[in-house]
Each structure stands twice: as structure tokens, then as C-alpha cells.
Nucleic acid binder design. Structure first.
Length: 115
RNA sequence: CAGGUUGGUUGGGCAAUCGCGGUUCUGCGUUGACGGGAUCGAGGAAAGUCCGCACUCCAGAGAGCGCGACGUCGGAUAACAUCCGGGGCGGGGAACUAACCCGCCGGAAGAGGGCCACAGAAACAGACAGCCGCAUUUUUGCGGUGAUGGUGAAAAGGUGGCGUAAGAGACCACCAGCAUUUGCCGCAAUGCAAAUGGCUAGGUAACCCCCGUCGGGAGCAAGGCCAAGCAGGAGCAAGUUCGUCUGUGGACGAUGGGAGACUGCUCGUCUCCAUACGCGCUUCCCCCUUGUGUGGAGGAAGCCAGUUCCGGGUAGGCCGCAACGAGCGGCGCGGCGACGCGCCGCCCAGAGAGAUGAUUGCCCAGAUGGCGCAAGCCAUUGGACAGAAUGCGGCUUAUAAACCAACCUGAGCA
RNA sequence: GCCCCCAUCGUCUAGUGGACUAGGACGCGGCCCUUUCAAGGCCACGACCGGGGUUCGAAUCCCCGUGGGGGCA
């Protein structure tokens, strides 16, 4: 996921967190908000409750890697935030991917149900 | 060979595919939220933020006070509380003890103050018991005594003698310790030796303090710059005349005026403003009136004018800031060493919600199990602590395991 | 990232100039009182964040670590 498709500005995060709709999962939380722009933007975040810097980076990399093959199937015009939870640092990529797919399905953001 | 100790190095390797960040080059019937190539991309601790610097801003005539840090000697260094080499004391390490390791280091004689609970007579000096002398009403008073008892973490140098009423460095010998002087090795601390002195001086300065050295304060969210806007501030400046039309409110034109921009200046050109002042609008006060701020009269204050300049702070963007450095690697020289000097070569992460990940194969340590006398073979498993954010030098803390070198002790062989 | 502060029973705190077997309140447990409950009374349990050091002696002083909190024009 290239950086221009990420959420970067602090106020964007604030807006999505405050006005978006959130979906919870034991491993992560998804917050979604329809956006005015034509493109999908995704922010991945891990707070201090996840653990040390190594564990936070690990959690964010897992979420990005789990998200990467799903990107073409996700509906555009959305701003998304994925928030890591403490258990995520100790899980595998396959479990993370299942969690992300489940969250996206619940938010009805996956366009083609091919996979 | 066994055991122990210290120092150093590494911190899995190679390959393939997909993906990410920086720099740079580049392609185009499609200049894109486009594509392609090259190259670089975490650590020994990046961590804790405990010290020291660089750098930046603020303050400041100079100096001092205060506060803080440090304190054996010599050296290294940009600097340090760090490092190297030496010294002293205490502790650990085979209950002694080797290599070696750990901690501490000015001053309590030489300024002064404070504290030393409980116990004990007494904590730096005041006699509880005991001993001795004198007096005495025979059980007390006065005096001497730190040699004895017990207390305590600490009790007036120790042993022996002489001496005495009893005792005491009061005196003597030896020992321990202190100060001064001299000599020797050493740059020095220190050590060794001798002489002399007074014979004794408790501990605590990680209590205040004294002496010496150093430090102005804050920290890259420092700090600098930029576009737009806002808060705010400052300057300048009014209402000319004439004509036409008219619905009498005004509109248009001309002339002149004001402010500004362009320019080095003038001319010139351009933009904006004004002749909005009335039966005006807003608020307040007061009077009359009304079902009612319903209607009316009066008074006060404000508005009906713009334009130019200056101009924040936060958020945003750029710089600081990632390629020239207390830089890295190699070689040589000097030094016991920390380190320094010279030559050659190299350019080596840099974001700004934060780039290193995923999958697969082979190999390398390691662990477990099985087979084997052994070398070894097979299977399964499996890679510590941990992620740069202004940079650097240290310290401290976390860390699976491997390799190399040196030293010590013991045993054996030559 | 940079810079500060704090840590004492389950909770809130006192003690910080060394003497402590660490005090108090609420809570918890037991007993008494009451017909019972509450209130009250008595008793008990219960802590110096961890490790080193200085000192005769450390909650206190010094160093290192751990955890928590706060600030940054």
C-alpha cells in the first residue's frame, strides 16, 4: 500500500474516529467513513496498549500485509482506519487475514464476492 | 586434559517471487493518485535519558553571591561522573589462597557547627560498682583513681616493668599508630629507611560545612523562513463646479479632488473612493398616548468611507536534517595502554500516522528423540534482546547462542 | 522525540532534620451490645516498588532499575 493511499493527516484520523462507524474484532477494530474523494484511503494504527515499539510495528505490518491482496476488491470512496489490539502482535498472518476479511464483510465494503 | 577468569568478534547465510521508504535517471498517440531502470535502507545496545559535548535561541558591562556536580597520582580526550596506566584501603574468588573481579578515595590533628537512639557511671567526659586515702556518730561524707567489672557498633594505644596509699605514658623498654624533617627508587601519588617530637588524637562530610576544579538558562516540539486568512496596530484623505434626463429618491457625462500601484525621478497610464446627511438606521433615557414598544414628541451616543502600510500565535508547507562528519575501512609509525600522527580508499538509513514485511527452497549453529562402542547418520523442531527520529562520545540496563585470543590452578606426557 | 514529577496496608494518607515492632481513617474478619439490623465498643489481619551502597543503624541519604503520571509557542 503506497503512502498516498494512506491516511496521514492528524485531522483526517480525528474526523474518521469521531464520525465514522466502527466494527470490533478481538484482534483489531475497523472504523469506516464515506469520503468525498475518489480513492480509498486506509490508516493503520497501534496504540501503546499493544506493547513495545517492536510489537506495535509488528502489528501494523501484519495488518498491512493482510490488507494488501484485498485492496482491489474494496469499495473506493471510503476512509478506513484499522486499529490493532494487544493480541495481534502474537498472532500469525493467516489469522490476521481472516480477521480483516471478517471486518470488511461486516462493513459491506468488499465489492466482488469472488474470493 | 579438567576447572576457573578476562578481553574481543558475530548477533544466522545464500537465492527466488511479491510488497514498502529515500535518492537519482528515464519513457510517453494516453502528462497520470502513470510506468520502467539503478542504488541505498536499523542496533550492539537504536532502549533508559544517567552524564558530557556539538548546534540553536534567550538573557547578560565586568565580577561576585547562591545553587549543583566532581575530588588518590600521572596520562588520554572536544568534553565527561568516561577511558588507560600506577597507588592505597575494604570485600569477593579453591572457607587460607591463584589468575582475576567488585566498591571506595581532598579535609574530622589543619576553621567551625550538628548528631551518635537503647544500654551504660560516662559517647568526649560529670565516677555506678570496685580500689585507695582522710574524716566519722559505723555508715555515711569529702577527695583521688580509667588498672578491674558490666553495657555498647564504638570506652581513655597494647604487653611487660618501674612506681604508688591505690593508680595513671607520671616514667622506662619493645610493638602498633600519628606528625615533622632528611635520604633513596619514581614525573608523581605511594613505598622503603633513619632521626626528632609530643605521648593518643573516637565515628560521621553519600549531615551542614571548609579547600580546590568546573558549570549563565533552556532545549531540534530548540530555532529560522513562506503563502493565505484572522486578532490587533498605525498613517492618509472627503464631500468642487457645470450640464442633460427625471418618477424629486436619483442616474449619466464633463471638470476638478483624494488615496494607491507601476517608475530611480518626472510625465503618463491604471485601479479604487467621495458629492450615501435623510421624514435615514440602531441602542438608551424621559414625556404623552394605547388593550399592547400601539402611535407620537424630545434628548444622548453610535453607524451610514474608503484606502494603504505594519502584523501575530496555533494548524499547514520548506529548512534545521541526513553526502564531508570529534565519519567509516585498511596499512604503516609512536606509545605498556587509552590514544595520537601519516598515507590510501569510501560516501554509509533517514521518515513526519512514522519505511525492513510475506511466501518458498537449500545451507549453518542449537534443542529433543531414535540408531551406533565411536566418528557419525536419520526424523522433528527451531533463531536471544530488541526498531533509528538533531547528531556524536560515554555510562547503565536487556540479551539465545557461537567463535577467537590471552592468563591462572591442578594432573599427565615429552 | 525532548523535559519533569511521583511510588508507604485493599483504598486515602502521616512519618522524610536516621531510633520504628512504621501511626491514623475507611474497608475486610472475629467478638460484645441488640429480639434483629444499623450505629457504637473491643480485638485481629494487613504496607515502606525492586536491587546494591554509605552508616553502628535506612521508609528517610546516594546510585541503578521497574511501574505510573504530567508538560512541550
Amino acid at each position: 500500500m503506497q503512502s498516498r493511499f494512506r491516511l496521514t493527516r492528524s485531522e483526517d484520523f480525528k474526523r474518521v474516529r469521531q464520525t465514522g462507524k466502527s466494527y470490533a474484532h478481538p484482534l483489531a477494530v475497523l472504523v469506516a467513513l464515506p469520503s468525498a474523494s475518489q480513492n480509498l484511503r486506509i490508516g493503520v494504527t497501534a496504540g501503546k496498549t499493544v506493547g513495545t515499539a517492536v510489537q506495535r510495528n509488528r502489528a501494523k505490518r501484519l495488518l498491512r500485509e493482510a490488507l494488501r491482496p484485498l485492496l482491489p476488491a474494496i469499495a473506493p470512496n471510503w476512509d478506513l482506519i484499522l486499529i490493532a489490539r494487544p493480541k495481534l502482535a502474537a498472532t500469525s498472518l493467516a489469522e490476521t487475514r481472516e480477521a480483516v476479511i471478517a471486518l470488511l464483510n461486516r462493513a459491506k465494503l468488499i465489492l466482488s464476492n469472488g474470493s
